[in-house]
Design a protein around this nucleic acid. Structure first.
Lengths: 254, 254
DNA sequence: CTGTCAAATTGGCCCTACCAATCTGGCGGG
DNA sequence: CCCGCCAGATTGGTAGGGCCAATTTGACAG
């Protein structure tokens, strides 16, 4: 659990002073939200930020560089650092970054992520059924086998679940789609672990995975897609109930 | 053409030595590809990279930080900088970064991007038809008006096209989807400009945009989605012909 | 052959210094 | 009183030196 580098003990991040990692990014993000800075507004200068957070200017510059590559801020030479419009400009990685830093997505974002995931994975599974090659099938089978092992050992199924879905996404032979789906699973890692904390969910998911794999192997794209849709709906129902809200937009899912 | 910072004359990037911007990222990327470094392999140390590219170590650290946030490399303290598996780990922003640096997507990636775009935008347009609010419609209308103005002035329609599609994506009320679609348009900005260099394409696109907007306004999600599908197919046909290849996987699009 | 310890290497970080461009404010001319 | 110009302060961009902790390496001693 220590090699991923993502599992951080500092969940609430209140007493964090023993490690002082590169949470500078997180601290700057917190600063922005606390100050209620809006799009277009200017952040303190690098020198000010360095002083405020008691770090060197280099560290600040690295943190800003990170925030810049996820399009949350914009550096204007000889002027300052400006906040970009959050939803319009922000990249998917901005969410991944936040999640990695321990800031969970809010309920609305989770709902939107689930909806997007359904769109991409259902369509992706259909493509996988049409295009899967021998090595894709072997990879999927390996992931299924790993799932069985994990269930037998009563370990958390979350990673196995993600790996299976990624294997399917890989079988689409669409690497751009794979990148997006991969980000989804980075975004929902923690939530997924909670979901599978209930040991009864893993066997059910595994059964559905096996059925999907069979359809994909048979080259039945639409069939596999239908199974994926049903598979995702069970998870979606759980989340919508837990979040006590409806899917984005207000009306019920089909 | 100079304010976006994305248009770089260094297309083939052979003789680039006159500006020396923050292309350090690009130079490191070039170095990696030239050396044929594979996943898991170690890059030279920061000090070596600094010396090799005749820059300070700070600059190298910032460039590596950028590459790390798009998940292309991994920094292991007291050990080195390692290349991550390109397709599995890489984020969509890694592609955006490359595009911004002037390295165009290869033909296969363009095809995959088009396919993904079709999936997301067709489904997204259906959602937009169901959920659009008054301000969404106003925004869409504003983009349509801007399109007419651009056409009347015989300017390049590329940005107008992107803005309309983004306005539709915004009407889905799914901000996560919006982020992904936004990345798509950042990825294809240059290609889009080339596409609309032929002045005959803009009026056709505008007509289709207007029809789509009407369906969205009427709340006809499926109808709008069908129009979007047809709209995208005309562009797709162009690209597939230009790239002289088939969509990902080998078989024809439906 | 094995265990141990010191030196080299590496990323993480701080600090100072300089540059070019921009912004600001005040002074002087009209 | 207003306008224009110019010097100083500010800001991001960058080089370069230095220290630390952890790891790796390799030589030396047992």
């Amino acid at each position: 659990m220590a090699l991923g580098g993502t599992a951080r003990a500092t969940i609430s991040g209140r007493f964090g002073r023993e490690d002082e990692r590169s949470d500078l990014v997180a601290r700057i993000l917190t600063f922005v939200t606390e100050r209620r800075l809006a799009s277009g507004e200017r952040l303190p200068s690098e020198r000010e930020l360095a002083e405020r957070f008691a770090v060197g200017r280099n560290a600040v510059r690295e943190a800003i560089a990170v925030l810049e590559t996820v399009r949350m801020v914009e550096r204007r030479p000889n002027s300052g650092i400006y906040l970009r419009s959050v939803d319009r400009d922000g990249s998917l990685d901005a969410l991944v970054l936040r999640a990695d830093l321990g800031v969970p997505l809010d309920a609305a974002e989770v709902g939107e992520l689930i909806e997007l995931r359904r769109i991409l994975e259902v369509q992706g599974t259909e493509l996988a059924g049409q295009r899967r090659q021998a090595d894709d099938l072997a990879h999927i089978d390996a992931m299924l086998a790993a799932g069985r092992t994990t269930i037998a050992a009563s370990e958390n199924f979350a990673e196995r679940d993600a790996e299976f879905h990624l294997a399917v996404a890989e079988a689409t032979r669409n690497r751009v789609l794979l990148r997006v789906v991969n980000s989804f699973y980075m975004l929902s890692r923690t939530r997924r672990r909670h979901y599978f904390a209930d040991g009864r969910r893993a066997p059910e998911a595994q059964r559905q995975h096996e059925a999907m794999a069979a359809s994909i192997r048979a080259g039945d794209g639409p069939g596999a897609a239908a199974l994926m849709r049903a598979h995702l709906q069970s998870a979606e129902a759980y989340w919508h109930e837990l979040l006590q809200r409806r899917p984005p937009g207000g009306e019920a899912a089909s």
